[in-house]
Amino acid sequence: MPIELPKELRDQAVRSIERYFQEEREERIGNLAAASLLNFFLQEIGPTVYNRAVADVQERLQARVAELDLEVHEEEFGYWRQAGVARSPRR
C-alpha cells in the first residue's frame, strides 16, 4: 500500500526538504529535486516507519484490552454488601 500525502502536506514536506538543504547543508535544492527525494523516502523508508507505527499501536491496544476487565469490572450480586446491613426476611 503506497503512502500518499495530501497535496498540502506534500507541499509542506517539499518546502521542509528545501529548507533543510539550505540551512543544514548550505546547499540549494530545487523544488523538483526535493519532491523526488520525498517520493524516494515515502517509497523506500515510509513503509518501514508505517509498519513500526502499526505495530506500536497494536501493542498499546493489546495492553489496554488486557487491562479492560480491571477498569470496567463490576462486582456481581453486590446488593446486600451495598446495603451494609443484613436484612431479616419478612414473615
Results as ranks from 00 to 15, higher is better:
Phe41Lys: 00
Leu38Phe: 04
Glu74Ile: 13
Val72Pro: 00
Asn39Ala: 12
Glu75Met: 09
Glu26Trp: 12
Ile45Thr: 10
Tyr50His: 10
Arg25Ile: 09
Ala33Thr: 09
Ala63Met: 07
Gln82Phe: 15
Gln82Met: 05
Gln58Cys: 08
Arg60Val: 11
Gln58Lys: 09
Ala53Val: 06
Glu23Trp: 11
Leu61Ile: 15
Ile45Asn: 10
Glu27Phe: 05
Leu38Gly: 02
Leu70Met: 13
Ala33Gly: 10
Gly46Trp: 02
Gln62Trp: 08
Pro47Lys: 11
Phe41Asp: 00
Phe21Ser: 01
Gln62Thr: 12
Trp80Tyr: 13
Ile29Pro: 02
Ala55Val: 13
Glu74Met: 08
Leu37Asp: 00
Val85Tyr: 10
Asn39Gly: 09
Glu59Trp: 03
Val65Pro: 04
Leu42Val: 05
Val85Trp: 04
Arg81Ala: 08
Glu26Thr: 05
Ile29Lys: 00
Gln62Glu: 08
Gly46Glu: 00
Phe41Trp: 10
Gln82Ile: 15
Leu37Gln: 01
Glu27His: 08
Ala63Leu: 11
Ala33Trp: 03
Arg87Glu: 01
Gln43Cys: 08
Asn31Ile: 00
Ala53Cys: 07
Glu24Tyr: 04
His73Lys: 09
Phe21Tyr: 06
Arg52Leu: 12
Ala33Pro: 00
Arg81Thr: 02
Gln43Ala: 09
Asn39Val: 02
Leu61Arg: 05
Glu44Leu: 07
Leu37Arg: 01
Asp56Glu: 12
Arg87Ser: 02
Ser88Ala: 13
Val54Glu: 02
Thr48His: 05
Glu71Val: 15
Phe77Cys: 11
Phe40Pro: 03
Ala83Met: 14
Val57Tyr: 05
Val65Leu: 15
Asp56Tyr: 04
Val65Met: 09
Tyr79Gln: 08
Gln43Arg: 07
Glu27Leu: 11
Leu38Glu: 01
Asn39Ser: 15
Glu27Ile: 06
Glu44Lys: 12
Leu32Asn: 12
Gly46Tyr: 01
Phe40Gly: 03
Asn39Leu: 01
Ala34Thr: 00
Val49Tyr: 04
Arg87Tyr: 00
Pro89Cys: 13
Val85Ile: 08
Pro47Phe: 08
Leu37Pro: 03
Glu27Asp: 13
Leu70Glu: 15
Phe77Met: 10
Ala35Arg: 04
Gly46Ile: 00
